[in-house]
Structures are given as C-alpha cells and as structure tokens.
C-alpha cells in the first residue's frame, strides 16, 4: 500500500493523465471526473507494490480505461452535475480551444489511442495491450485519427 506521502505524490504526478484519458473517453468533464476519482480511490486502496514510477503510470492508465468501460456500461449513467462544478477546459490560445473541439469531435475509438500515443508517448504495442486491441488495429486507428484530424483542421 502507498503511504499518504506516496499517494499525494502520485496524485500530483498522474491525476492530470488519469483525467485526460477519461476526458478523451467520455468527452464529458463530469463523467471524466467520476472515472478519475474511482481510479484514484483504487490506487489508495491498492495493496500491490509498484516497481517504479513507470509501473505506477501504466497501472493507472489501465485502471482508468477499465473504469471508463465500467461507467459506460452502467445503465445508471445519468448524472446531475452543474457545468459550473465541472467546467470545460479553458485554453490560453483560441487555436488550442479549436483543436480541442476538433479532437473531441473525433469518434471515441480514435481519441484514446491518439492521446496515449501523442501525449503519453506509449508505443503502438503498449496501446494495444492497454486497450485490449491488436497492434494492427491500433496502427489503423492512429492513421485514421491523424487523417480525420488533419482534414478537420484544414476545413477549419
């Protein structure tokens, strides 16, 4: 089990990643917060030791994706949360706001692999392991995601 200090450090280092993965999955900040909170609660209760920071990061990515699937699959996925409580991201540059909207308009099956690849720096094989997909499927989705995003950016 993590000590309180270790847990706090893990929150500082990885909560944003957990939230971003969930936001890419759901597009909805309230749902992303739910998944992030559940994931971090699992970490706080986890009894397993982590070999190093990378082990912890990958464990969190996997648990986040599992939480997203669980929440998606639940018929009670209806929340009453005001947007004031869970605000949409705010960007320093309008172009980034546009890019965010373009990314969020991509189909769900493209958003998460794209984030794991571009932002978290995972390889195609690792993304396949995290998402339970064949490497070739991940490659195809990344290629199509890039293509779609490029088209959207050009059209914009």
């Amino acid at each position: 089990m993590l000590t309180e200090k270790e847990f706090t450090e893990a929150v500082e280092q990885h909560l944003d990643m957990v939230y971003r993965i969930a936001l890419n999955w759901f597009r909805s900040p309230p749902d992303a917060e739910d998944a992030a909170q559940n994931t971090m609660l699992r970490l706080w209760r986890a009894e397993k030791p982590f070999a190093d920071g990378e082990h912890l990061r990958r464990w969190l990515a996997r648990v986040t994706l599992n939480e997203c699937k669980r929440i998606s699959a639940n018929p009670w996925r209806h929340r009453m949360v005001s947007m004031e409580i869970c605000p949409e991201p705010v960007f320093s540059d309008p172009a980034r706001q546009t890019l965010f909207q373009d990314v969020m308009e991509l189909p769900g099956k493209y958003r998460v692999p794209l984030y794991l690849y571009y932002y978290e720096g995972y390889g195609v094989r690792e993304i396949g392991e995290l998402l339970g997909m064949k490497t070739s499927t991940v490659q195809t989705r990344l290629a199509r995601a890039r293509e779609k995003l490029k088209t959207q950016l050009e059209e914009a």
Partner: peptide, 23 residues
C-alpha cells in the same frame, strides 16, 4: 500542437482536493 493543447487540460482543483481527501 496536440501536446501543447492537452498540456493545458488539467483536473480541477476541486477534483484534486477530493482525491487528496481520500487519505
């Protein structure tokens, strides 16, 4: 551009506080 954009997406302070309160 993609990395710069997501670099500005953060968990809210409220969520962070809720998570830290788990301890």
């Amino acid at each position: 551009k993609y990395r710069d954009m997501f670099g500005e997406v953060h968990a809210s302070d409220r969520l962070k506080q809720e998570v830290l309160n788990m301890t």
